[in-house]
């Protein structure tokens, strides 16, 4: 145990410092303690202002919805891909290569590419000879399709790699063992493969959910003007030329962080329970 603590110190200390400083600054700024102009004054005004502006609630709803749908798709696609990676030669070579090559692409580049692909005058629209007006509104549309597709695409690669690493060869061997013990395909999936993948799915799914919740560039590039997801709202308030609203930007960020924390903690509890009952 002691050795374990020592081993993670080099990674944990800088992380804790950076995170601690950022969160402290965020809290301080959201409470008006470090104003750009004027004297410091502690208050929760920024929180009540942003809450009463009527923009926070829709932002929370839309952010959670986007993250939930995108993560659900990413889990489904990522899990299937991971299975193909661990059980087929095609999967272990081609799919793994594809997934690995997807990881280093920054989300902002991915978002730009998805935009070029799916926009009204994008490649696909041209490929299908769609005339203005009858192409589905992926980009800036009411269903946030392009945003969700971008997250789902990037995160499914991430989830696939994490789950495939967990399943590795053993899961395939265990599934075959189960087959020899009389388990059909459905039973193998339900009693062996799924339970083996579940802890990794919970962890990777939580990471991608929290990422989708807190990331700015994808909904900003591919989303619509209203309602705004939380990070876009925070960014707009942060870059407002009215310095008075800057604390509100940090208030929105703190709310986002709180939501992410709640989700992270619940996921961890779920994860623990999975591991214990496993």
């Amino acid at each position: 145990m002691k050795r374990f603590v020592l081993l993670i110190l080099p990674a944990a200390v800088p992380t804790a410092l950076v995170l601690g400083a950022a969160v402290t600054m965020g809290v301080a700024q959201s409470m008006g303690l470090t104003p750009v102009a004027g004297g410091p004054q502690s208050s929760l005004d920024a929180y009540s202002a942003v809450a009463s502006s009527g923009e926070l609630a829709p932002a929370v709803v839309i952010s959670l919805s986007i993250a939930l749908v995108a993560t659900a798709i990413a889990i489904a696609v990522g899990f299937t891909t991971a299975l193909a990676m661990t059980t087929t030669r095609f999967g272990s070579k081609v799919l793994k290569g594809l997934a690995i090559s997807t990881i280093p692409i920054p989300h902002v580049i991915g978002a730009a590419a998805i935009g070029l692909l799916l926009a009204d005058s994008g490649w696909l629209a041209r490929l299908f000879g769609s005339t203005a007006g009858n192409w589905p509104q992926f980009v800036a549309g009411p269903w946030w399709a392009a945003t969700i597709i971008e997250y789902a695409w990037k995160e499914s690669a991430f989830i696939a790699l994490v789950v495939a690493a967990t399943l590795s060869r053993d899961a395939d061997e265990l599934a075959k063992t189960a087959a020899v013990l009389g388990a059909g395909p459905a039973a193998r999936m339900r009693y062996v493969t799924m339970p083996l993948a579940t802890p990794a799915l919970i962890l990777a799914g939580t990471l991608s959910f929290v990422y989708a919740l807190g990331s700015f560039e994808v909904p900003w590039l591919l989303g619509r003007a209203y309602p705004e997801p939380l990070p876009v709202l925070a960014y707009r308030l942060f870059t407002s030329t009215d310095l008075e609203v800057r604390p509100q930007a940090f208030a929105v960020s703190m709310v986002t962080m709180a939501i992410a924390l709640v989700i992270g903690v619940s996921a961890l509890r779920l994860f623990r329970r999975q591991v214990v009952t496993a």
Binding site: E173, T177, L196, A278
Partner: peptide, 29 residues
Amino acid sequence: PPQRRGIAMVSQRPLLFPHMSVLDNVAFG
């Protein structure tokens, strides 16, 4: 398919299901 042949197999590695208790492993068949 394997599950309908009535043939069981034990390998060099035990390959027990790690997410199940010992009893549930044996009860699997």
